[in-house]
Amino acid sequence: MSRWWTEAVAALGDVVPLPLATLLLLLVALLVALGWYFFPAWVPRRLPRLPRLRLPRFRFPRLPRWRLPRLRRLPRRRRRPRTTAEAPTVPAPRAGAPEQPAAAHASLADRLAAEGRYAESVRERLRDMIRELVVGRVVEHRPGMTVAELTAAAARVRPRVHPPLHAAGTIFSDLWYAQRPATPEHDRRMRELATDLHRELSGDPEDGERR
């Protein structure tokens, strides 16, 4: 039994001469080699576009839009800045004025009260009381000292001066820091407190003249 390729070559030789078939095979091999060597330069980059098939579009009917009512914004409340309560300080002597005796402050307080300037009269009356404490060496006045500090310092040395001095400091704080209106009653009360303080400092059971 002969091999199948022998019969195939014999059948091909009957149709195409063998030299021509050999030449064709060499030509095909050459074309394949050139195509393999220059690949992919000969391959087209873009393929031809196929025509698009446009299908009819189906549009859904538009539904009505439901809008919610707008809510009004409430105005923001502005926060008030917190003001820290300032501790009432002892009224300092008038700028540029020399140190005066306690009686000078008392006489000035009387003149201010006669003019209806009761708030200033209360301040001068408190200066009179502080000056009397300093002269009596009960306290040592320091600039910036608060009324509470002055009262506490005086009470440590002379405990009995605390009630009138504390009451006088309260009246002064109400008028000059709490901005309450001054009345003749405040002036009358300050006179009584100044008299009580003088009595405690002098040690006399009854009112006496100031030194």
Results as ranks from 00 to 15, higher is better:
184 P>V: 02
137 R>E: 12
161 V>H: 02
138 V>D: 00
4 W>P: 05
127 R>G: 03
114 A>K: 10
83 T>S: 11
69 P>F: 03
139 V>K: 01
101 P>I: 04
173 S>E: 11
94 R>L: 10
150 L>T: 01
120 E>P: 04
9 V>M: 13
164 P>H: 01
2 S>Q: 11
48 P>R: 13
103 A>T: 09
108 L>R: 05
168 A>E: 02
202 S>L: 09
202 S>Q: 11
47 L>P: 02
125 R>I: 04
147 V>G: 01
75 P>I: 13
10 A>P: 04
163 P>E: 14
16 V>H: 07
8 A>M: 12
145 M>V: 12
53 L>N: 09
196 D>R: 10
69 P>M: 07
25 L>F: 10
209 E>Q: 08
52 R>V: 14
93 P>F: 08
130 I>T: 06
171 I>R: 00
95 A>I: 12
146 T>S: 15
14 D>P: 00
128 D>L: 01
15 V>F: 06
23 L>V: 14
190 M>V: 02
37 Y>D: 07
119 A>V: 06
72 R>C: 07
99 E>S: 15
11 A>I: 08
208 G>C: 07
130 I>W: 00
200 E>Y: 10
76 R>S: 14
108 L>M: 04
29 A>C: 03
81 P>R: 12
43 V>G: 07
18 L>N: 15
20 L>I: 07
34 L>N: 15
204 D>G: 05
2 S>T: 12
87 A>P: 09
45 R>M: 05
14 D>H: 14
135 V>I: 10
200 E>T: 07
85 A>R: 05
97 A>S: 13
122 V>I: 11
25 L>T: 13
166 H>R: 12
196 D>S: 13
76 R>L: 15
151 T>G: 08
112 L>S: 01
86 E>H: 10
194 A>H: 02
48 P>Q: 11
73 R>N: 08
42 W>C: 04
1 M>V: 09
